Amino acid sequence: MATPLTGQVDFEVHGKVAHLILNRPEKINAMTVTMDEQMNSYIYEINNNLEIRSVLLYGKGEKGFCAGSDLTDLGEYGSNWEYRNRFDRNLDYARAIWLIKKPVVASLHGWVIGGGLEMACASDICVASPDAKFLAGEIRWGWHGGSGQTQLLSHRVGPGNASLFLLHGEPVLAADALRMGLIQELVPREEVLNRAIVIAESIAEKAPIAAQMTKHMVRISQSIPLETGLLYENDSFAYCMTTEDAAEGQRAFAEKRKPEFKGR
């Protein structure tokens, strides 16, 4: 009998920030089907709990953020056709990150490989340490990633840089990932998680409707023509201005105090 694979995805809520924690450090947080199921089980709570306003994503252990899927566990997804339809079965952890409506801040260190890279691409803001190494090495084994690797990465860093990742199949260092725009900040290893927490908590203090609409509009900008996007942005802005939070923001500005946003 095969030895059961250990590891889990922990879910914690600290104030207004939900923490998604990959907890399989002995395997560089390589994702199993069980961990995939756990990740997907948290998304409904994150999207529908009004107390949660932002999300922090990180992996435990010194070796890295995530080594992607555990290839020894892929058979647990079922047949090739069942694996192809994993989106419909809520069985894709990178897709789960993409489906989070609230801003996601990822803290990255060490190895960020395959599905780990896809989770980073599905996040809104990435903070990394200098030891971070990004790898889309699937091409070396006969396939490419299937959960955003060719699409989200291309949107994030441009087609030429994405092709370097995907076709060359060699590690990309943190400094180059910063230059390409894959990550937004590069900070010392001992500070990377704390910096990501600061950003996530700062976002959580903002008006939640405006924050979610802003995330939505940034995504929209990647899919529609600029002129259409500008019109859509104006409509989104007009909606935000009808909220109680917008009225509170205006009062707080006039009264020179910190606003108290309620998400209404």
Rank of each mutant, 00 (worst) to 15 (best):
C66E: 03
Y232P: 05
G169M: 11
D92G: 15
L5Q: 12
I46K: 05
I183D: 06
I100G: 04
S154T: 10
A132L: 09
V187P: 04
G229V: 14
I197W: 06
I100K: 02
A162V: 03
A162G: 05
V192R: 05
G158Y: 08
V172S: 10
I224W: 09
W81N: 13
H144F: 15
I113Q: 01
L230T: 10
E190D: 15
C126M: 10
S163N: 11
D176N: 13
I125T: 10
E45G: 06
A246E: 06
R95V: 12
M1P: 10
V13M: 13
R86N: 06
Y42Q: 02
P25K: 12
K102A: 02
P103I: 01
E248D: 03
W143H: 13
E233D: 15
D10Y: 07
F261E: 05
L108S: 01
L193N: 03
I97D: 03
A247H: 05
A162W: 02
E12G: 10
P4N: 07
A200Y: 01
T6H: 14
V104S: 00
L231T: 15
I113C: 06
I183H: 02
G64C: 00
A2Y: 13
G142M: 06
S147E: 04
L91C: 07
S107R: 01
F65C: 00
F87M: 03
A238P: 04
A204K: 02
L152V: 01
L50F: 09
